[in-house]
Amino acid sequence: MTLNTTTMSRALCGTSLALVLAGSVLIPHAPAYAADPASITATVLDVEDDNRFFMRTGGTARGDVAYEGLTPGEDYTLAAQLHHVGEDKAVGDPVFTGFTPEAASGQTSVELPVPTNRTQYNIDYAVYLTLYKGKVDQQSAGEAAALAEIRDTESPDHVIQVHAIQAIAVTAADAADGDNRLPAEGGVIRASVDHENLVAGYHYTLWGELLKPSGQSTGIYAAIPDYVPEAMNGQVTMEFAVPEGFEGISLVPSVGLYHKSRVELPQDGRLTVLPDVPNPVMIASDPNLDRADKTIAIGVLFEEQDDN
Rank of each mutant, 00 (worst) to 15 (best):
V199C: 05
P253L: 03
I168H: 08
G234D: 04
H158W: 14
A172F: 15
S192P: 08
P243H: 07
L198C: 02
A184I: 00
L210I: 01
S254G: 03
V228Q: 15
A167G: 12
E244C: 05
A200S: 04
E244P: 05
I224G: 10
A173C: 08
T237W: 12
A169R: 13
P229L: 02
L206I: 03
P183F: 02
I220V: 05
I220G: 06
V188K: 09
L198N: 01
P243E: 10
G208S: 03
V252N: 09
R181E: 10
V159F: 04
P213S: 08
A176F: 01
L206R: 01
A176W: 00
A184R: 01
A241Q: 13
G186P: 03
W207E: 00
T237G: 04
A241P: 09
F240A: 07
G201D: 02
G219Y: 06
N180R: 14
L251R: 04
H158V: 12
A172S: 13
N233S: 08
I224R: 13
S217Y: 15
V193F: 05
Q166C: 04
E196M: 13
G186V: 04
H195P: 06
M232K: 15
Y204C: 07
Q235N: 15
V162L: 10
D174Y: 08
Q216C: 07
V228L: 14
P243D: 07
T205I: 01
G208D: 01
E185T: 11
V252E: 06
I249H: 08
L251I: 05
Q161I: 14
P229K: 05
L206T: 00
D157C: 02
A176N: 07
N233V: 04
S250Q: 15
I220F: 03
G245C: 07
A175H: 09
G187T: 04
Y227I: 02
G208M: 00
I249W: 09
D226Y: 06
A200R: 00
S250D: 13
D177M: 02
A172Y: 15
A175Q: 12
N197R: 12
V188I: 11
E196P: 03
E230W: 02
A167H: 09
G186C: 06
D157K: 06
V236Q: 12
E239S: 08
G219F: 05
P243K: 09
E196K: 12
G245A: 06
H195D: 11
Y221V: 02
D226P: 04
V159T: 10
H195T: 10
L251E: 03
S214R: 10
A169N: 13
E230L: 04
E244L: 09
A173D: 13
V242E: 04
P225R: 07
V170Q: 13
G245E: 10
V228R: 15
S214H: 09
A169M: 14
A169H: 14
E209K: 06
E247I: 01
A200P: 06
S250I: 12
K212E: 12
E209S: 03
S214M: 08
V162M: 08
E239V: 05
S214V: 08
I224E: 14
R190P: 09
A241G: 11
V159E: 12
Q235Y: 10
D157L: 04
I249F: 06
D179I: 03
V162W: 14
P183K: 01
L198I: 03
D179R: 00
R190V: 12
W207A: 00
T237F: 11
I160R: 05
